[in-house]
């Protein structure tokens, strides 16, 4: 029946159009705050306080220079880069070694160790604040870079992802390497690592973004601006310039831009990584 089919097609099209429109509205709702902070950051103070509000960006660049001069941003950026970079390096090394042990080598109690590692996911971070504060103070690591790097130097997500990778590695590859007389470390360095690159990049990106965005931990464990990361710096800036909305908006823009750029370039990989976490906890 062509008429019926036509009606069905029309209904399908109109539903697709309506849902597309709804999707667009949702997208605007999610993206709008980013637009709005840019608008505010380029507006003069008078313009920001006017009613009704102006939805187009102004041309006031002065907010940026004022906000930039208001804190030791360069130091915060360098601290963040250093902490994030060191954490990523440490996580990759610990995950690669542990993933190899759990995914390739055979030893008694392997399943038990894997289960123990996965059960670490059950320990909520907020619970660790008090005892880790005590541990770090005993180590004399409070208010240092160490306190922000080493405690995050191993990742269940990283170990699990690499174990899965090693587990899926063809046995022939391991055997061929054995035939060539490769040692375990040679195998890891020359064969496994290049193949594991996609997984390593995903882990690295996640750890990098997480340490760029981290706040609570460094907020508790450090007190000097010369070791603090960007978000703690921004929070302090917010505390002291809480009513300078144009300057604050500028600070929000320039502190968030780097992580935004990383996200835009790596979004597909990040999405795959997030989907993989479902598998990680589903067991």
């Amino acid at each position: 029946m062509p008429a019926g089919a036509g009606a069905a097609l029309w209904r399908k099209r109109s539903r697709r159009f309506r849902s597309g429109l709804l999707a667009l509205l949702i997208g605007i709702l999610f993206a709008f705050p980013f637009y709005w902070v840019i608008v505010t950051s380029f507006s003069s103070t008078n313009r920001v306080y006017q009613f009704p509000p102006d939805f187009l960006p102004g041309t006031e660049a002065h907010n940026y220079s004022r906000a930039w001069a208001g804190a030791t941003w360069v130091r915060f950026f360098l601290n963040t880069l250093f902490i994030a970079g060191a954490t990523v390096a440490l996580v990759l090394v610990t995950s690669l070694l542990a993933g190899f042990a759990l995914g390739v080598t055979r030893f008694k109690g392997r399943e038990l160790v894997l289960f123990a590692v996965l059960s670490i996911l059950m320990i909520p971070k907020v619970v660790l604040l008090i005892p880790d504060y005590v541990v770090l103070s005993k180590l004399h690591w409070l208010d240092t870079y160490w306190a922000q790097i080493v405690p995050w130097g191993a990742s269940v997500f990283g170990i699990f992802l690499l174990r899965q990778f090693f587990n899926a590695l063809p046995q022939e590859l391991v055997e061929a390497a054995e035939l060539d007389g490769a040692s375990q470390m040679q195998f890891l360095r020359t064969i496994a690592m290049p193949l594991a690159r996609p997984a390593l990049v995903t882990i690295g990106l996640y750890i990098f973004i997480a340490s760029w965005n981290s706040f609570l931990w460094p907020f508790i464990m450090t007190s000097s601006p010369h070791v603090q990361p960007i978000e703690v710096g921004l929070s302090t800036f917010f505390g002291t310039n809480g009513t300078d909305w144009t300057g604050l908006s500028a600070a929000v823009v320039f502190t968030t831009l780097p992580v935004m750029i990383v996200f835009m370039f790596a979004q597909r990989r990040l999405v795959e990584g997030a989907s993989a976490t479902t598998g990680a906890t589903k067991g």
């Binding site: 080598t105 005892p131 880790d132 080493v150």
Partner: peptide, 30 residues
Amino acid sequence: GIRDGRFALLYLSPALIVFGVFTIGPALFV
């Protein structure tokens, strides 16, 4: 051999030390 497990604990130790000192230990310490 590459699949030989005699050094497995050695390979696991960096991760296990970090977890032990900063996650598992503190979870009991609290």
